[in-house]
Design a protein around this nucleic acid. Structure first.
Length: 557
DNA sequence: GCCGTTTTCGGCCCGACTGTTTTCAGTCG
């Protein structure tokens, strides 16, 4: 019994429960949370049940859900799920085979499009009818729920990577293991994990891997490679490699495809290299043999990196150690969970020289937007705080809403008191591209506008973000002396690497910010740095790699 | 249904906007 099967049943139960008239939404959530946890659990629930391990030790699992798990493992089914299915309409029962579908939303689609089956749903999706009649969100929801393979945010894959790697060198007895693929290139979303594996007996590794997380089904197996379906919903690929050619294999498995195409124009095909008998124990040796500088994995997307490696003009990519401060962070004054002092102490522990406090502005009521009066008070408070702090400087700032007409959410005489501003859109996502672009450009005309926060508003795997003409906004920023941010929040990573590259090439500096809402979130900066590196940014292009004096002069327009 | 420096109940964000959908539910952070 795989963890995935257990998770599916719990999720289906939660799903059916949610369409019951007298449901307890917290109960629904409890089942869904437990299912989500189980999907990424490395230990085998099947084994845990048989060894009578106390399941309530798992977070989100109490007596009731522990019983359910035991029942599923020991009998193969869940009574309460089956009786709920029996009570449900046939449509609803079929929907419950797809635990990621939200039944209430699907029933709305059924009614609107006059369909009554999963097949009908799939057809309507493919024909674009769902997007047309019920909007992009709904279409995205249905698409994601029907897809066999789930995509996963990079930061979630981090934990999974560590757990699989441990399993490979532990129970699987691999001698050497290294992750490759899109994960190594730090793409923001991954749908597979690829590992290079050196082992005495590769077939045995493949056999043992199938017991990861209870059971991890083998999808495809060759002599020197294998693919598995992880409970977490993504594919796990293993590829056998040898010490003499480790570097060559690593390049091949790291990709991307378009990078390899451009690379092989210089080196000849990978297959030929493999057959040549030359040894490439590491990547550097291969690049060096063809007169190329080392190309960082984050750059291997088939843009200009191979040409630049030939000319010796690859960028010296920014790294986490280059960061000197944080420019987007919230405190208790709006929707953060820690005081300014606590945030400052943590920033200082990280070795930062400055910390900008950017609480939400007055219009954003739900996030505890700060009234003008309270911001005046906060400005004076931070002045006094700075007098007694040493080693770190708190910058007076705000995450100022860009209102629908492009005006900013505070009067100029208040904005003037701030060291700088982060200005963001939090409302009216539905405006057309032209209108949205104009809105931001108008906002940039305000001399107190400094950094554009999360420029497109996207939430990865959830929502595409509003439409703007990024190229025009970049030009406006350059002209007006404004800056962008890469928001490091793992479900935003906004600007995208592509847009950040565009801004960087136009000479517009970018803040790599965390948007931290608590002291725990400062560390997320590494995900922003991943994207900055994918954008080819050097530290000279990153705003918060600059010393404070330089920064302050850039913020005065 | 889970959880607890709130310990056996009561909370688990929240609250103002938006729209042609469904005038309530979805949406913003």
């Amino acid at each position: 019994m795989s963890n995935a099967e257990v998770a599916d049943k719990l999720a289906s139960f939660g799903q059916l429960l949610s369409s019951q008239p007298e449901k307890n939404p917290y109960k629904v959530r409890a089942y869904q949370k437990a299912a989500a946890l189980i999907r990424v659990l490395p230990a085998s629930l099947d084994e845990m049940v048989r060894q009578e391990v106390d399941l309530t030790g798992l977070p989100g699992v109490g007596e009731a859900i522990a019983d359910a798990i035991r029942e599923i493992v020991l009998t193969g089914s869940l009574g309460r799920l089956e009786s709920l299915r029996a009570q449900s309409s046939p449509e609803l029962a079929r929907i419950s085979d797809y635990p990621r579908l939200d039944p209430k939303r699907v029933l709305r689609v059924y009614k609107k499009l006059n369909i009554a089956s999963i097949e009908g749903l799939r057809d309507a999706l493919d024909a674009g009818l769902i997007e047309q009649q019920l909007g992009m969100r709904m279409a995205q929801h249905v698409r994601q729920a029907l897809m066999p393979v789930e995509a996963m945010l990079l930061y979630k894959a981090d934990a999974l990577r560590a757990s699989v790697e441990e399993f490979l060198v532990g129970p699987c007895d691999a001698r050497r293991v290294e992750v490759a693929g899109g994960y190594r290139r730090r793409t923001e979303v991954v749908d597979e994990l690829t590992f290079l594996v050196e082992a005495e007996d590769f077939a045995a590794v493949v056999r043992t891997m199938q017991s990861y997380g209870g059971e991890t089904p083998l999808v495809r197996a060759g002599k020197s490679s294998a693919a598995f379906g992880l409970s977490a919903g993504i594919v796990l690929r293993l590829r056998q490699a040898y010490p003499t050619n480790w570097g060559l294999s690593l390049i091949a498995c790291t990709g991307s495809m378009s990078h390899l195409r451009k690379l092989s124009a210089v080196t000849g095909s990978i297959a030929k290299l493999r057959a040549s008998g030359d040894a490439f124990p590491d990547e550097e040796s291969l690049y060096a043999q063809f007169g190329l500088g080392f190309i960082a994995p984050e750059l291997r997307e088939g843009l200009d990196e191979v040409r630049r490696a030939q000319m010796g003009t690859l960028p010296a990519l920014v790294s986490v150690d280059d960061i000197r401060g944080e420019l987007h962070a919230h405190s208790l004054s709006s929707d953060g969970s820690n005081s300014i002092e606590q945030m400052a102490a943590t920033a200082q522990m990280r070795g930062y020289e400055y910390l900008g406090i950017t609480d939400h502005s007055q219009s954003l009521k739900i996030a505890g937007g700060v009234s003008p009066d309270d911001l005046w008070k906060q400005v004076r408070y931070i002045d006094r705080l700075n007098e007694r702090l040493s080693g770190i400087r708190i910058l007076k700032s705000s995450e100022v809403d860009i209102l629908q007409d492009g005006s900013l959410d505070y009067p100029d005489d208040l904005l003037k008191e701030l060291d700088y501003t982060v200005c963001s859109i939090h409302s009216r996502f539905g405006l057309g591209k032209e209108e949205q672009t104009e809105r931001i450009m108008r906002a940039m005309d305000n001399r107190y506008f400094n950094i554009l926060g999360h420029a497109t508003g996207r939430l990865l795997l959830k929502r595409p973000g509003y439409e703007i003409d990024v190229a025009r906004v970049v030009m406006q920023a350059r002209q007006n002396g404004c800056f962008f941010e890469i928001n490091s929040s793992p479900d935003r990573l906004d600007l995208s690497a592509e847009n950040a590259r565009m801004a960087g090439e136009a000479g517009v500096k970018i803040a790599v910010s965390t948007d931290a809402h608590s002291v725990r979130e400062f560390g997320l900066v590494r995900y922003g740095i991943d994207q900055a590196r994918r954008a080819g940014l050097e530290k000279s292009s990153v705003l918060n790699c600059l010393p404070l004096e330089h920064l302050s002069s850039l913020f005065r327009r």
